[in-house]
């Protein structure tokens, strides 16, 4: 079965919300016949900013960069296994840079029809300094975006596949 949505991209940042988003995306891909890719972005922009602001030493930047690369591998492999459980093949993509820009560019490059993301942050402040990368992504990408909420319901949907 192939529907009008042919290519889905899910953004993974290691948060529980992003893993729920992946589970929902797997369910969506299975029922729609769309192909699924999972993307993790190592936030090198933030690392560079922290060095420029002198909050991080160069040695800390190197250490955290390494940690983030390991996280990328770990979380993407986790998502791949979730896909395998439901017989869904997932293309794994790992990029580095400014998170929302890399997602936006990847959507264009891969001609994705739909971006799936975990829950965006609650509005607790009007200060735009506190928009996180998921919020920025939601605002900046050009394709339709599906925001996944309610982890329990997502779990039930995933288990029912």
């Amino acid at each position: 079965m192939k529907g009008p949505i042919k290519k889905i991209l899910v953004y993974i940042d290691g948060s529980e919300a992003s893993i729920s988003a992946a589970m929902y995306a797997i369910a969506f891909a299975k029922t729609s016949g769309a192909s699924l890719s999972a993307l993790y972005v190592v936030n090198t922009r933030a690392l560079n900013d922290l060095v420029k602001a002198r909050i991080f030493l160069q040695t800390e930047e190197d250490e955290y960069h390494h940690d983030l690369e390991k996280d990328a591998e770990r979380y993407l492999n986790h998502v791949k296994k979730l896909g395998e459980e439901k017989n869904i093949e997932i293309e794994l993509l790992s990029l580095s840079g400014t998170v929302h820009r890399e997602i936006k560019d990847e959507i264009k490059r891969g001609d994705f029809d739909l971006l799936v993301i975990g829950g965006i942050s609650q509005i607790r402040s009007r200060r735009d300094e506190f928009f996180n990368e998921t919020d920025r992504t939601l605002r900046s990408v050009t394709c339709p975006v599906l925001v996944v909420k309610d982890d329990d319901k997502v779990w039930d949907i995933f288990e029912s596949l």
Binding site: D13, N43, D49, L68, E129
Partner: peptide
């Protein structure tokens, strides 16, 4: 590491 960097970046920005 990811959330740690995110919070430090928030502080740097604000």
């Amino acid at each position: 590491a990811g959330p740690h960097i995110e919070v430090l970046s928030d502080i740097a920005r604000v």
